[in-house]
Nucleic acid binder design. Structure first.
Lengths: 189, 189
DNA sequence: ACCTGAACACCGTTCAAGT
DNA sequence: ACCTGAACACCGTTCAAGT
């Protein structure tokens, strides 16, 4: 509870910088991840940044790495935790992503990836991972290879759109409509 | 064909700045729309920028305005030019957007809008305009109000996803699969 | 009407010096 | 091992002065 500021230099580790930077990445975008403002927030001089990182680009690489690991882990957890018949697993997965706003970190990274090959490769990898997972669910539900590819992509883009769009309605209404959308995307089986 | 550089100060208008800035916005994002680099590209000193604009924020506002007018115009043109039965109009609209990559400017503006209320209001307005148009097409095709709302949103998010995703396949393949996706989204009528 | 050039504040980067 | 402080280059902004 004490608000006494330490009078001697603070000691930080890489993670303190990475956490603070990741927050800025998602709130303001990659271009606004800046060293001096971060240093002020962390109450050290910007010179100390260069003990932990080679330069600003090095920090951005760590952010990408952090994002990719979080996103991969989420997919794997979904694959492990969701049981029941395939249709149920599709519903639960999408409910979980939309209901808990799990894709909210995507937009900043995706915008950054648009014209930078390094984040692009990482985003591609995550997209492939997620689409493979969704495609598998549709296949388990009995759809053919091509049909699963098409339907999983429709579903994936829908989930992204829910987060990239500013027209978000209140959550209960969104989830109610989601149900009907899933019916449309899984119809014909 | 002469490459002689004018030896006296160049004379520019607002539009020259706006065009150059809009290119940077889409290639690098809003945060990298910077005055001095723009001035170098345009071969004037950065001081001259402040004759045409109040400050950097003023320039960004003009960019938003430009974007919004272009996007509105496109929707209105589609509404005018596309005839035939409603189902055909849906197909033609989406083919036109995806086939010509018309949504490619969206991502930069959308990422910018994520945490800035001014671009957010503009993006909201454009989203509403486009969704109304699509919803109208579904209603014309005989779907009910609620059902049209749901299906147009699925379609809209799909079209956005096609541009925000890095997994883009070659165009002919994409258009072939698009056909099947449209069938799914317009099935049950 | 449109531009230059100098000035100042802010941030990325380096590095010698401190604890 | 981790930080400060000073230095320099780069960019946003202002403004008096030029054409």
């Amino acid at each position: 509870m004490s608000r006494v500021k330490s009078t001697r230099p603070r000691r930080l580790d890489r993670d303190a910088w990475i956490e603070a930077a990741f927050r800025v990445l998602n709130e303001k975008g990659a271009a606004l991840v800046r060293i001096e403002p971060l240093a002020k927030k962390l109450r050290v001089t910007k010179g100390s940044f260069y003990w932990h990182f080679k330069d600003r680009h090095d920090l951005l690489e760590q952010l990408l790495d952090y994002w990719a690991r979080e996103m991969t882990e989420t997919v794997l957890r979904f694959a492990k935790e969701f049981h029941g018949d395939p249709m149920q697993r599709i519903f639960r997965t999408v409910h979980e992503i939309i209901g808990r706003e799990r894709a909210k970190y995507d937009l900043a990274v995706r915008a950054w990836a648009k014209h930078d090959p390094q984040p692009r490769r990482v985003v591609e990898h995550i997209d492939n991972l997620r689409l493979s997972f969704l495609r598998g669910l549709f296949q388990d539900a009995g759809f053919g290879t091509e049909e699963s590819e098409i339907r999983s992509r429709l579903l994936y883009y829908y989930v992204m759109g829910e987060h990239f769009t500013t027209l978000a309605e209140p959550m209960p209404k969104r989830l109610k409509k989601l149900q009907r959308k899933l019916e449309i995307l899984t119809a014909g089986q």
